[in-house]
Nucleic acid binder design. Structure first.
Length: 553
RNA sequence: GGCCCUGUAGCUCAGGCGGAUAGAGCAGCGGUUUCCUAAACCGAAGGUCGCAGGUUCGAGUCCUGCCAGGGCCGCCA
């Protein structure tokens, strides 16, 4: 839990002892319960500066503190010079009451107030169905957006539709080949084209719906008709898959629209006016190497066409123009080399290093029975995100993607994902929530009816205090996870809390005096508040990760 | 050849800004069990933190080198 007053008091004490600026007070949660609730290494940091042994500095610091005013039970100097603080249980109990009263607001913060953030993720080429790898980026992007919103940021979720360029043309070529095959012509799918069954399906649709209009000879008009049809269909499919994962976007920006609006040509002029462009070997280059990139990059090829980089620059510049303070992109690790060049050109255009961020998401490997599931279409195996969600459900899919650091290559264990027991961490957390809610049901009361203004002093056994301390950590966890763009910190916290809660709950199975219900009325009332606060934190955390919050399992 | 990610228990992974005895889940081992939800619980065990140096009062954490796995180095997207 946070004790801003203690940090401030320590800083004052340090100054009193003669420490100048340039030190920071860090309070940490010791792993060893014998080391109290909070600890600081401040004395060790100051020892050299004050030329005194750390233990003596620690003693002097403690002497400056008014423990009672800080709601501390004691402050002990230990080990090489740590100061260990024990919090008075009353402070914990009042904190608990606050949690229950704040309800849905508990864990929300205002640190991001006034900041507009654009989170761009998925942005898959609209040339086929989403695969499992897209799912990880989708889950992480969505969770980061939720974290930022929870900490007060004004968040927009955005999907960049690459509906221009060579890949789309290849898709049209592939559909054309299938289409002509349907008409009895011997036309192979071109090299580098798309071979999936969905391409043949699209060709059939084109034949049925547009066959009259486009015949067998495809010019620009016909291609455009087919392209529009394919884009509509494939984007609709992708959106549906994402919706099944509980992901919705606020904005879809089309690459094509950047061409149509003239924004890309304007971008070239803008770069020119900033003297970032030059011609060489018949192409137009942008001097990204001036801003840290390995080398300069081509924007206009020698044949006059544009590289992908140019619209992408235009697009990111547009995010700034739309008023976002920060643009966070979630990219697959295979795009890693692209980060530097984008940062470089944005810096060249005058955007500070804080404007553009990339979260790189590593590739995943799917295993079943200890064997890798190949991402090829085979009977019984799946390849698409849709197949995965249908097999294990949205909760498990999301959680498994969110419980690991984004930059960690991960194994998606299908056997564990399909496990419907507490071996599966998602169920463990949801189970803890359901158990608490079952207590209210058993007592015949609604959660909202629990009296929060009762005397909490009956709460005092260690197991209860441990749960309370854990609950009071939640806001810090949310802030840290949002700041680091790491949803897995929340997942790890919830798993730990669920363990603690289940252990607390099960103690009541062995010893009836440890139960919530059926003990002395004052104790029962106090424990109902504990149950309620715990349920609130579990629920808020699950919602923050976009997971279901079941009343019963 | 260069760049990025990763290397921690048998397996999958956590380990704020350097801090005290390195944690969790799964598997394995021993025990308990009809409960306010047993779709379990309790307990013990399990470690050269890839290797070697360095910085520091103190290194899983910072620096250097090396090894291993993955990814990327295009006028593709």
């Amino acid at each position: 839990m946070r004790l801003p007053d203690l940090a401030k008091a320590l800083e004052l004490a340090a100054r009193k002892l003669g420490a100048e600026d340039g030190f920071e007070v860090h309070l940490t949660r010791p792993q060893n319960p014998a080391h109290g609730d909070l600890a600081t290494n401040l004395a060790m940091l100051l020892a050299g500066r004050l030329s005194q042994p750390p233990q003596e500095v620690a003693q002097a610091l403690v002497a400056e503190l008014d423990l009672a005013a800080l709601s501390l039970e004691k402050a002990e100097v230990a080990g090489p010079g740590f100061i260990n603080f024990s919090i008075r249980p009353e402070l914990l109990r009042e904190g608990l009451r606050q949690i229950a009263k704040e309800d849905h607001e508990y864990g929300r913060a205002t640190s991001g107030a006034g900041r507009r953030v654009n989170v761009e993720f998925v942005s898959a080429n609209p040339t086929g169905p989403l695969h499992v790898g897209h799912g990880r980026g989708a889950a992480i992007g969505d969770a980061i957006a939720r974290l930022l919103a929870c900490t007060g940021h004004d968040v927009d979720r955005e999907f960049y539709v690459n509906d221009a360029g060579a890949q789309i043309e290849k898709l049209v070529d592939s559909i054309a080949a299938r289409y002509l095959q349907l008409r009895g012509e011997d036309e192979p799918v071109p090299e580098g084209g798309y071979h999936g069954e969905y391409v043949a399906e699209l060709a059939r649709e084109v034949e049925e719906q547009l066959g009259e209009r486009i015949g067998t000879v495809w010019g620009a008009k016909e291609r455009e008709l087919v392209r529009d049809h394919a884009l509509d269909r494939l984007m609709a499919e992708q959106k549906e898959d994402l919706r099944a994962l509980r992901i919705e976007f606020d904005t879809f920006t089309s690459e094509r629209s950047l061409y149509d609006s003239g924004a890309i040509d304007a971008m070239l002029e803008s770069l020119e006016s900033k003297e970032l462009l030059y011609r060489s070997e018949g192409a137009v280059w942008v001097a990204t190497s001036r801003f840290g990139d390995d080398k300069d990059r081509v924007l206009v090829k020698s044949d006059g066409s544009y590289t992908y980089f140019l619209p992408d620059i235009t697009y990111h510049r547009d995010k700034a123009a739309r008023g976002f303070n920060t643009a966070i992109d979630i990219w697959g690790a295979d795009h890693h080399s692209y980060v530097k060049r984008m940062q470089s050109v944005l810096e060249g255009l005058g955007h500070g290093p804080d404007f553009f961020e990339v979260v790189l998401v590593q590739l995943i490997r799917v295993e079943r029975g200890g064997e890798e599931v190949k991402l090829s279409k085979r009977a019984g195996d799946f390849v698409t995100l849709r197949d995965l969600v249908e097999e294990v459900g949205a909760d498990v899919t999301r959680y498994f993607f969110l419980e690991r650091r984004p930059q960690q290559q991960m194994v998606f264990d299908l056997d564990l994902a399909l496990e419907r027991s507490e071996k599966n961490p998602v169920y463990k957390i949801q189970y803890a929530l359901a158990r608490l809610r079952s207590i209210y049901r058993r007592a015949g009361i609604e959660a909202g009816e629990i009296d929060l203004d009762v005397d909490l002093s009956p709460l005092g056994i260690q197991r209860e205090l441990d749960v309370i301390k854990k609950l009071l950590d939640y806001p810090e966890v949310v802030e840290a996870a949002a700041g680091d763009r790491e949803p897995h910190q929340v997942a790890g916290y919830l798993e730990g809390l669920a363990s603690e809660v289940n252990s607390w709950y099960h103690a009541g199975n062995r010893d009836k005096s440890l139960r919530v219900l059926g003990v002395e009325p004052p104790l029962q009332s106090a424990r109902l508040v504990l149950s309620r606060a715990t349920e609130i934190v579990l629920r808020n955390g699950l919602e923050l990760l976009g997971l279901d919050t079941p009343d019963r399992m």
